[in-house]
Design a protein around this nucleic acid. Sequence first.
DNA 1: CGAAAATTTGAAATCGCTTTGAATGCCGCA
DNA 2: TGCGGCATTCAAAGCGATTTCAAATTTTCG
Lengths: 338, 338
Amino acid sequence: MRLKDLAEHLGLSQTTVSRALNGYPEVNEATRRRVSDAADALGYRPNASALRLATGRAGAIGLVLRGADELGPHMSEFLSGVGSHMAAQEIDVLVATVASHAEELAAYRRLAASQKVDAVILHSPTTRDERAELLLELKIPFVLHGRTEIGHPVAWLDIDNAGALERATSHLLDLGHRRIALLNGLRGQTFAEHREQGYCAAFADRGLTPDRGLMANGVFTDEAAFRTAQAMLARRPAPTAFLAGSMMTALGVFRAIRQAGLELGTDVSMIAHDDVFPYLNADNMYPTMSTTRSPIRQAGARIADLITQVLAGKPLEEVHELWPVELVLRESSTRVRE
Amino acid sequence: MRLKDLAEHLGLSQTTVSRALNGYPEVNEATRRRVSDAADALGYRPNASALRLATGRAGAIGLVLRGADELGPHMSEFLSGVGSHMAAQEIDVLVATVASHAEELAAYRRLAASQKVDAVILHSPTTRDERAELLLELKIPFVLHGRTEIGHPVAWLDIDNAGALERATSHLLDLGHRRIALLNGLRGQTFAEHREQGYCAAFADRGLTPDRGLMANGVFTDEAAFRTAQAMLARRPAPTAFLAGSMMTALGVFRAIRQAGLELGTDVSMIAHDDVFPYLNADNMYPTMSTTRSPIRQAGARIADLITQVLAGKPLEEVHELWPVELVLRESSTRVRE
DNA sequence: CGAAAATTTGAAATCGCTTTGAATGCCGCA
DNA sequence: TGCGGCATTCAAAGCGATTTCAAATTTTCG
């Protein structure tokens, strides 16, 4: 069913039918009704490629995922947040997966050259993100999930990682902990730097300095966390508290604690960052897990929103959102016990 | 940079340039070289919409995700498997998210009507999957991840869930377990039915009958698993072994076991199904987890492959793959101890 | 050498839509 | 009656690629 068929069926020109369906004012209300009824009845929908070619809009946004390891379970949540908002706008989401940084850059170049997307979502930025610079150069609008420091203004949405870690660390310090291990993300990632800043700030506020040996950078897998935590617990004096970068990290740390013959929430404390996965609930862990909490799905939905604003022409300087992070105290964080 | 521009730049017609780039035989080798060099140098890539319109191929496949709860962490792995293979073919992956079954059907109708995709990947089928029937009716080619029983032949790739559970159950029976709890997926899902069949078959082989009260259906979240396992452990006599439907399920069961004051691998055994997430490793759990193992990422990559075969015209009857599932024995499954 | 065949190139039609610019019909009003 | 103005409708020209069909050039060979 093409526009032409529909037009013939109705005894109208393509022009009129097109206008009727797209809500142009110069078409008779009776005609419009007739057209849109027929379109519904016949299940007409414009051919996407033709529409895109004619309008010059791709009607799609891109999301490039690099290696599942880095993304882990976050992505499906984030994606469903994005998707829910995009569907309403008749914009689809193109997901490309790449293996390396170089491939990722190439992917953006391809997207730009073939004009497959109107904008992209950029995530997991580094402090000075090369991809962001490339996107600016390619003139692909984008919204950044996170922050980066490059010359130009960019649209971004981020959670207050520094604030979250400052509060979490402060809380542990207030409970008397002094040797607090930080299992952070990879060095260079903006969020990891911010978390470190927050962590250090809490110490500094109290005239204390953190132990460098208790600050680790790595991927957020149970395995990496297990190894790191195990090594740290073997030190003397051992840390009395852990700040875990993600729920997967928390699982690994938890395992290390048990294997060391210690008890979480009694001998050792932990606060983990929780992106809120529906299939893994901090509240249902045993003991229940204290967390810094920020739903990643909502962030995805909001970013989708911001993308449409950017595409509508809103100045990038005005598209900045810093979301606060809740500190939810549960059983895993308790007063130090030496 | 349009084809026209490139053609003018080279002093050639669009026809020739197009042919040169698309590998048609009737173009002089010297010309072809000249053209493709220029294309590379200038970074020319055909406009995707125009290309699609002209060729009638959408150059994309669709993947509709319904509610993150059902998918959980599986999807990002699966997706990266799919994506890696599709990128090579210059086919992109369109991900749509929907909230309900009805929305999902509507999404397929939209995809069909607007011809946004050449094919789709259908996953998590029910025994008689309505979506599969719709796709046939809409004449959208698809490959099913899983199996379903509808009138027509469909292309599918599935893992041998029945075989996997039969072996896992048999193993537990051989270890002397008789009260083996099965934490299965939702009723109606094909894989859940298959798993139940395998489970029952193992009992039947030994002239035994499983306890219906130990067969539960639910979503694969730690929370659901925890509740179910907790309830089952409260029964008398209590189950001595668990078959967990996923790694998330395993975490929940594990927690229930500990909370009941029991020890996994000693008092209670468990075998979990492992889809192999890079961020959660059965080998690194404590105790290490016995699993039925089948990497979902590979399945995604292979399905991408099958899609291209189907699009190339391979008869659906010939596109069937049943993947065996490994049974990996580790510390969590031991001889029963009454 | 010259006609036929083979090779190489190009002009124009096509894909299905939007949008420009023109045409039609109808009304009111002088 | 006639004409400007308004409300509607339409024919045709894009959008940027592929592809058909024809033309130009070169090669082959009797």
